[in-house]
Design a protein around this nucleic acid. Sequence first.
DNA 1: GAAATATTTTGATCCAGATCAAAAGAACAG
DNA 2: CTGTTCTTTTGATCTGGATCAAAATATTTC
Lengths: 187, 187
Amino acid sequence: MNALIATIQSKIQLDKDTQEVVMAAFTERVAKKGDFLIKEAQYAQHIYFIESGTVRTFFYHDGKEITSWIYPENLFCTTWYSFLSQQPSFEYVEVMGPSVLYEISFSDLNTLYQNYPALSEFGRKMVEEQLSFIDYFSKGYTFLSAAERYELLLSFFPDVEQRVNLGHVASLLGISQETLSRIRSKK
Amino acid sequence: MNALIATIQSKIQLDKDTQEVVMAAFTERVAKKGDFLIKEAQYAQHIYFIESGTVRTFFYHDGKEITSWIYPENLFCTTWYSFLSQQPSFEYVEVMGPSVLYEISFSDLNTLYQNYPALSEFGRKMVEEQLSFIDYFSKGYTFLSAAERYELLLSFFPDVEQRVNLGHVASLLGISQETLSRIRSKK
DNA sequence: GAAATATTTTGATCCAGATCAAAAGAACAG
DNA sequence: CTGTTCTTTTGATCTGGATCAAAATATTTC
């Protein structure tokens, strides 16, 4: 659980006692390739910290899987809309290979926030960082060409192609697999 | 300033003292059509609460203005990426008509957060709501057709066309003005 | 309230990227 | 190993929406 504690400590001071509380509040979960953490129509009851492995979120549109994001280790991951607004999820969260995760439920997390102002502050900073990132990235989606979107993705996720297959990356970029293949072959 | 206080109170308890602190921390700013709140390359030093009026954020790409979002009254507005990560802004924030805004700087807001845990909690909930919304909406951008994106926008911003002109809505949807005109004429 | 300016619509043409089809490579199970 | 299945590449064709051009409406401004 060291990576989780270290990630929290990168944003706030965490005294020994609160550290214990955090470690008691999160539950370890070992998952294997193909496991689902959240399924469509479920509420996203948990947020996950990825200790090791890769996780992707996706949804169905016109019968096809659309990858919405890919998360590597040392990040928090959930379906943000469903988790934060406690609405049914339209997304699935799938583990891409052997992984170790730490999970906490929405209600347990909010209990922590209420009892430990420092953790509420951490929660704010984590969500601020996530918002900042999505805001920056989603601007690129609207007007960049397929090749430019690919470059943008690689610029902050260079090893994404080692983690998931071509089709997942293509749907994340909003382009077809064939187009991505052609973009790559021309580099 | 009642709308600002009411918005904060919709998320947290706010005692009389803290209410005074908030009212002292925000500064009223009266703006007119065409005024810029934030200009590209500037740091987004402030976040604005819109008491009345309409505000849009936009950026330039290939010499053309791309509207990134349109905010009506009773919302907080800033360039989230630039404000939260304190990086130079690539966006402009422009007032679309006579407006009254309440502004607070990044550093003043963070001082409030440090001194008043209730306000830090409010900050967390505000950002959570914003993240939840962007997460939900940006999924639509990647794969919906032009007409579907237009319907999605209207579903939660029905009077957007009364607030800004066609070209702004079109670039917000990532489509050309002509295409939006054709979509509308066929309803 | 007429002239000037800005916004929206309509028409014709073009292209990035989708879709359909099939071959070529990898990975994997027995 | 070797057949089966999954993944990626390559080729041919098609289409939604862009771009270019101009007309039709609205909105300002003096």
